[in-house]
Simulated assay, not measured.
Amino acid sequence: LADGTRLYDKGLPQDEAHLTALFNELKEHGRVLLIVDQPNTIGALPVAVARANGCGVAYLPGLAMRKAADLYPGQAKTDPRDAFIIADTARAMPHTLRVVDRNDEVLSALKMLSGLDDDIARDCTRTINRLRSILVQIYPSLERVFAGEVLQRAFVLDLLIHYGGPTKLKKSGKTRVLTWARNHAKKDPEALVDDIFQALSAQTVTVPGTGAAEIAIPMLATNIKSLK
């Protein structure tokens, strides 16, 4: 309350039912203002529930929170201490608060989508690098055929998914691979298939671990296709 009286001072589960019950209980004592320090992350659900129940919403910026914390005894950063500091600062220094408006929600959504896009891009790059590393390990001459962006082409990924690696490519033979390629490539694949089989002819030994690598290759190629 405005005079510092505590009406609720214990842990609260992060779910709508408990939050709604608390807000309704507090509204019996007057207008309710929810204060959070992270409105776009852990505070997102309480903010949404508070609004749905007609409560005001504001947040205490990080800098203001840190300055306020210096005024209170103790150095330990605990949830109960932080909650008390936020509540008491909001009561005693309301000018430090900022309104949580709809623009914050838009910004939060953009940050989330941007973060997701960045994560997918990093995952894709990491998977491409892993696939390239495996090819270098078992068949360097074949990896060189897929230099640069070539390895990321949909047709090349489909070829690796279908054949798995150098062993099955060799076993299938150039004629059959070229026939398959012509049925799946948008452009004439003959030059690329020529390069592939020229690279395959450059190595006669089988590197230890090739069998396991050829299990991983189609899996990685499939993952890259799903991430692109």
Rank of each mutant, 00 (worst) to 15 (best):
A2Q: 07
D3P: 12
G4V: 04
L7S: 07
Y8W: 15
Y8M: 09
Y8I: 08
D9R: 12
K10D: 14
T20D: 07
A21L: 12
K27A: 09
I35M: 11
D37Q: 11
N40P: 03
A50L: 02
Y59L: 00
L60R: 03
L63P: 04
M65T: 10
M65Q: 07
A76S: 11
D82A: 13
A83D: 03
F84A: 06
R91P: 15
A92Q: 08
M93I: 14
M93T: 13
P94C: 12
H95R: 13
D101L: 01
N103W: 12
V106A: 12
V106D: 08
S108C: 08
I120G: 00
C124I: 07
R126T: 09
T127Q: 12
N129H: 13
R130D: 10
R130S: 10
R132L: 03
V136R: 15
Q137T: 10
Y139M: 09
S141T: 12
V145L: 05
L151K: 03
L151C: 02
Q152M: 08
A154K: 09
A154S: 12
Y163Q: 02
G164R: 02
G165S: 03
P166S: 14
K168C: 05
T175P: 00
R176G: 01
V177L: 05
A181D: 07
K187M: 05
K187D: 12
D194V: 08
D194M: 09
D195H: 12
D195E: 13
I196M: 09
L200S: 11
S201Y: 07
T204Y: 09
V207H: 06
V207I: 11
P208S: 07
T210I: 13
A212S: 09
A213T: 04
P218S: 02
M219A: 14
L220Q: 02
T222H: 11
I224R: 00
L227S: 04
